[in-house]
Design a protein around this nucleic acid. Structure first.
Lengths: 353, 353
DNA sequence: TCACGTTGCGTTAACGTACACGAAAAAACA
DNA sequence: TGTTTTTTCGTGTACGTTAACGCAACGTGA
């Protein structure tokens, strides 16, 4: 009899060893009620001993129900199409895993609006969700949501920005400090000794400040570590519209001729727009993100370098990590810092965002 | 009766419509013999009409047999650990898809040895293989193998280098011309007007020449397109050992002081080794690939930039493409040019190869 | 004509799990 | 003690596909 082989695994074997039926084993596996503590413990012990891995094919064949993953990220705004990329990655991953009975439900919030974030959170029915992929833009609001997830034991993955200290499955996103550090490294090649460098923060959001300042820190520390003598100027611009930005730029650039400008986020295109209009010698311009707007100026040569951290891949890999965990109990690295890519007008056509 | 719903799909429905049994339907699906041409055609028509997608869970539950993918790439040599990266990507993909009953069989050949390539090809039993991932280093030898694959209708994917004109499922690898073009772009920032630039080809293999020259072409064309006045020198070194390389370098560098050197492949570390020993002012050095050896010199500052094209991802995505096609009949892009990454001593620790 | 092979097809038992249904056992109540 | 309720558990069917087995019908050669 070849039965010996086949009976060594599966619910049947567990049932046999525990002297119960497969129905009972099934109940403890799904911890439904109706099993005495005693037999439940016995069965759990056997499961652990056998390191029982349920057959996912049989499981998903027998169970008609879909798994649901909720996606909580900003929606694409007129201001920037940055979030298009993660969404594309998510959609691709979603398409790949959909044959395995997984449904992806997007909940998209306004990038600068906490209220909108909370509205979307409220729409998610945690009893119908087996995993969450989120960009925790707003620290406090996210913390509250995450607490709810943990109490329901729903696994979640962060993308784009991290909130350390939580028990997330993993994080896929940039190492902000390093990307600032790298930008400074590029600068070193481009500015001559003692030429001035300007850092520009453009953001109205307070939560953002944390991100921006970590980049700035990296940037400044590189200059310090490498004893670069170029003076660093810096301005904060709290309004993101062109009128404000151009005015602020005009003021400082008239007084202080700079050889290079480092914009700490994707709004570098606004700066580029200003620089294009002035006839003066163009300073080197470095900024972030492969957005439509930035790309135009990159190709025109107004922007010299863009730093980018694979937003598409963040979405793709984030969702895949969720899938690997929920379906196969596979956990990968907890922190997955995306590579820091340097984009120029030459390689931009080949950049896979 | 809810039967109406459930009967609308699956082999049962096909069988019902064709007035045959599911056994017969199964036979034509797996085109086994024992079905008359007439009913076979009828069933195939219905399958197409219904756009029947077999339930993969039921399929893999019922069928105990494993799918086999053969991997035909160079093995890691002492000379370079380049091929470690693709293999790692392949192994990761292999681990992820192994629960779906897929076995990955590596056949590794010596990178510079056609005989070894043919030996490995001979070891592959095409009747036991459902897909092939290969790096077609040797054009003619590969062509022969590919012909065999096509006659058996076994899908195959190229990585690292492409042989256009074949009906491969897809290609994952670099766009050589562009990576040369980009290198030149970097040079532009780094050398002053009329300073000399040196291109170095180090390779004993003839097949390689094709690759190298496409890079060189890209490099030269950038200079032409942008009317850069720096003269370009060039040497070919046909022996890859350090003694030869250093001798050749000594000869040319003594005569011609150059501001920058562009090495067209991963052997840039050999050049770096030489430069490190000379006390002269170090020229800018650009080369290819994130190998162990190159990394050392990059961190020491001898190599300034490395161009890299995600060898790990080539392996990962290549195998995944095979999987998506064989299991889910999903085809993606045919040509997948990898992003052209610029690696410096600053971002190298964050580079995901 | 019989015996035997071939072709074309139907039937059925797996594959491992989920879950509804109902039965037995235990507990609670009278 | 008998009756009801609750707890605990076993049985059976379904999920969609695979493939072994077997049975007709037909053809072939003697």
């Amino acid at each position: 009899m070849a039965r010996k082989d086949s009976e060594l695994t599966g619910v049947k074997e567990i049932a046999r060893r525990a002297n119960v039926s497969i129905g009972t084993v099934d109940r403890v596996i799904h911890n439904r009620k109706g099993v005495s503590k005693k037999t439940k413990d016995k069965i759990n012990a056997i499961i652990k001993e056998l390191d029982y891995q349920p057959n996912i094919f049989a499981r998903r064949l027998a169970s008609k129900k879909q798994l649901v993953f909720a996606i909580l990220i900003p929606k694409v705004s007129q201001e920037t199409n940055y979030w298009e990329a993660p969404l594309l990655g998510i959609e691709q991953a979603g398409a790949e895993i959909s044959p395995y009975g997984i449904t992806v439900q997007p909940y998209l919030y306004e990038v600068n609006d906490k209220k909108s974030f909370l509205e979307q959170v409220a729409r998610i029915d945690l009893d119908q969700v087996q995993g969450v992929l989120l960009a925790p833009s707003f620290i406090e609001e996210s913390a509250h949501f995450i607490k709810a997830l943990e109490s329901k034991k729903i696994p979640y993955v962060f993308i784009n920005s991290d909130i350390p200290g939580y028990n997330s499955l993993s994080y896929f996103g940039p190492d902000l400090y390093q990307s600032g550090y790298l930008s400074a490294h590029l600068m070193k090649y481009l500015v001559k000794r003692k030429e001035k460098v300007l850092i520009i923060n453009i953001s109205q959001e307070i939560d953002d400040q944390h991100h921006l300042s970590r980049k700035e820190q990296g940037f400044r520390n590189y200059f310090k570590d490498h004893k670069i003598e170029s003076p660093i100027l810096k301005i904060d611009i709290q309004q993101t519209d062109y009128a404000h930005v151009s005015k602020a730029l005009g003021q400082i650039l008239r007084k202080e001729p700079v050889a290079a400008i480092f914009v700490t986020n994707s709004r570098v295109s606004t700066v580029a727009k200003y620089l294009k209009k002035t006839k003066d010698t163009q300073p080197i311009l470095i900024g972030f993100d492969y957005t439509k707007e930035n790309l135009v100026f990159l190709k025109e040569g107004i922007i010299d370098f863009l730093i980018c951290q694979k937003p598409r891949e963040q979405g793709y890999k984030g969702l895949m990590a969720l899938y690997q965990f929920v379906l196969h109990s596979r956990t990968g690295e907890k922190n997955n810092f995306m590579p820091i890519d340097i984009i120029t007008s030459e390689n931009c056509d080949f950049y896979i965002n």
